[in-house]
Design a protein around this nucleic acid. Sequence first.
DNA 1: CTGTTAGCGCGTTCAA
DNA 2: TTGAACGCGCTAACAG
Lengths: 335, 335
Amino acid sequence: MKERRRVTIRDVADAAGVSVATVSRVMSGSHTVNSDMAERVRWAMQELEYRPNGAAQGLASGMHRSVGVVLPDLSNPYFNDIIKATYVGASREQYRMLVTEWREPGEELGVSLDVLSRVDGLLLLSARMDIDGLRDLAARKVPTVLVNRVELGVDLPMVAVDNFSAMLELCQHLASLGHRRVVYLAGSPSAWQNRERWRAVQQARILGLDPVMVAADGTIEAGFEATDEALSHDPTALIAFNDLAALGAIARLRELGLRTPADISVTGFDDVSLARFADPPLTTIVSPKAALGELAWAMFEASLRGERIEQPPLLRAAFVHRASTGPARTSRSRV
Amino acid sequence: MKERRRVTIRDVADAAGVSVATVSRVMSGSHTVNSDMAERVRWAMQELEYRPNGAAQGLASGMHRSVGVVLPDLSNPYFNDIIKATYVGASREQYRMLVTEWREPGEELGVSLDVLSRVDGLLLLSARMDIDGLRDLAARKVPTVLVNRVELGVDLPMVAVDNFSAMLELCQHLASLGHRRVVYLAGSPSAWQNRERWRAVQQARILGLDPVMVAADGTIEAGFEATDEALSHDPTALIAFNDLAALGAIARLRELGLRTPADISVTGFDDVSLARFADPPLTTIVSPKAALGELAWAMFEASLRGERIEQPPLLRAAFVHRASTGPARTSRSRV
DNA sequence: CTGTTAGCGCGTTCAA
DNA sequence: TTGAACGCGCTAACAG
């Protein structure tokens, strides 16, 4: 295992007794190469343990064979399954994944642009930048797909779950259990998914629901902390923005001596892997995270090839009734 | 938002009426530049919305300003906090993060090498490749730090948690509660952390524990499914490789009508964010995931600068007693 | 089918 | 202090 200078295409060419162009050709799988010449080249590459320099390839060809993934928060486990599915697609095509989070709202566009010189395009997960930002990106004609966000009037391929219908179905479920006074534990106000879900909850007035919104932000901690304020509205059910917030809420309710669902029902959204193992198992919406990731990659790939992409329909998310919801308790003051 | 050709350093130079070299200098913060010239350049960069081409910078300077993060499984939320902390450090230094998982054991080295042509170095999270692989990497003299793995005889900086001591402390806790017959729900056999934790559990024989190992793999599902076999050994406590497996086990126990900890105690490891919100809240080990990520980045950075790195001591992980453990039930057959 | 060569965009000598 | 010119490693014409 001796130390060695980086071996370049030049070294391979010399070792094989051919030109660098030929080496480049066998790498790209060009069929216009004499087969035993190609064999010699491959042998030399093996022998020298040649690894093409990605930066050089990118600079010369304009293709980087990597995709930029931009998301709000790396620590949020919700994105894991999406990223995973995307990664599977990407690696199948020998693509690498450059992951960036932005944290500060307002940094999102900057971060995206920054990474643009090292990738062939972008996957924007749960983008929250304003429409102008999206338009800016769209105008750059760089393959970019929006995941978990739908924005009419922006010329970008997008893939998202039908949050509205799913949430409405969940509300229907609650209504049928006799719930009326409910609190929506909100996600980030600037998140499209939050707006859709809240829109559905409001729509559910026609089902008899009487919803109030309480701010949180889709983390366990936020769900935990927002619960006290939620209870001040004397609800029979808590509709959390997502599973994490729901889990946090349940933990707080337990602390307060309130039983779920006997005293109060709680619903989640997403069906993270823990949801069904929680106590009680969470009534929630199964968002097709893997499908989302796969589809996002597929659209990205199509976009790379310059194909004109037809907008796929919103992905359906299934409602699943587990044990965290039950009949509304009859209206008497809580414990 | 008109469409436009990529603006290069040339454009900036022209707009500012200077040479490209000068522009390059102000970018690198060279102090040998006339200040109003520098000002003009900065103005031109602003005006043209100039973004240096990363690939070109990488090619010219030999630095890619990005780090490769290699891990076993993107969907495992355990890594989120580590990656997050690493990312914070990296982005502070304008570094990007190229993330890759390997899935198939045996692909790890290949994946690592593959990414090496586009990054300045590697962060190997919970690496499971064999020593020869590590040595191969070490011989390449590329900045590489091992996270969650310690391997004497490999010349690579490494940072890890003191799994052994922490697990021993946890065992001490169980022993003091009168537990004797315990089952260790194992993680991946090739994971260093698993080996360390199991080693500690075995060591705990001197504390009176009588441990049996049952295969699992550190996921909720695996913990859930391994529980039945674990019970066949009639333990009073389950020591799970990590929190996820513990949570899965508890879910299964509940299904079986066994109460935690009244009928059987369960411990986790890591203290993922859900652990304290679970029912019952998990007795576990708080691994300093953020510190791990920060330290990993710091060591990587030092390694980049060519500094000789002194091996830091293992990070201490605190034991935390919550409600999933209690006195061993007196020995009578289970329900 | 193969080799020569001109860039890709930028960092970095080396003179001036 | 500044600019001209070379080279980083590779791809993609263009010749032959």
